[in-house]
């Protein structure tokens, strides 16, 4: 996303399409009633969630408005009372340490050191799940849990949307913990 937006600008490449994140559309489709998500599944379970703000999407692209859309979607899906934000958040959030090629760079020890801040932010929320709506964030936050023995799960946003819609298939649950692995099957 950022590499395309920044590249089109930097290299003066003309184009005639819009650039969007599907997170903006998730929010739009929920508002329009096309995605009839609800959080009833979590009313009694009370599973707690936090969310990572991907730098490429939030700080480096669309800013706080898209971070607000992200929270609107997450709250609609898991229940407002079951969402706990990190501190700081949105455009002020810390990078997870998975971006910039870090995961591929071979500087693993430095990457874990860097990620300690993100790990602490997640642990301080007390949430069982961290929603990571970016592939690099997902890999890094997942790896930080393994490395620091965090005891939380790292999930994609699409997994939770489908879970709340009752349409998440059996093979689409690789990142859910045992508490949600069979919910709604």
């Amino acid at each position: 996303m950022y590499a395309v937006r920044a590249g089109l600008k930097k290299f003066n490449i003309p184009y005639n399409f819009e650039i969007k994140s599907i997170i903006q559309l998730y929010a739009q489709w929920i508002r329009e009633g096309k995605l009839k998500v609800n959080s009833d599944w979590n009313k009694d379970l009370k599973v707690k969630f936090t969310v990572q703000d991907p730098c490429q999407l939030v700080r480096k692209s669309f800013g706080d408005p898209v971070a607000d859309e992200l929270r609107f979607v997450v709250k609609a899906v898991v229940g407002e009372e079951n969402f706990i934000d990190m501190t700081p958040n949105k455009s002020n959030n810390y990078c997870c340490g998975g971006g910039g090629g870090y995961l591929q760079s071979g500087y693993t020890e430095a990457r874990h050191h860097y990620g300690q801040i993100k790990f602490n932010q997640i642990k301080n929320t007390g949430a069982t799940y961290c929603i990571a709506p970016c592939h690099n964030c997902h890999s890094q936050i997942h790896d930080l849990n393994d490395h620091f023995d965090g005891g939380y799960y790292t999930v994609h946003l699409w997994t939770l949307i489908c879970l709340s819609l009752g349409i998440l298939g059996e093979n689409e649950r690789a990142y859910l913990g045992p508490d949600l692995a069979e919910l709604g099957l």
């Binding site: 395309v4 590249g7 290299f11 490449i13 399409f17 819009e18 969007k20 599907i22």
Partner: peptide, 25 residues
């Protein structure tokens, strides 16, 4: 290489006549 990749991607969207380049993240 960065410029090449962006040009290939932009052309792919335009060759199919799509209106929005949609990112999954």
């Amino acid at each position: 290489a960065w410029e090449h990749i962006v040009r290939v991607k932009a052309k792919a969207v335009e060759d199919l006549g799509c209106k929005v380049w949609l990112n999954t993240e």
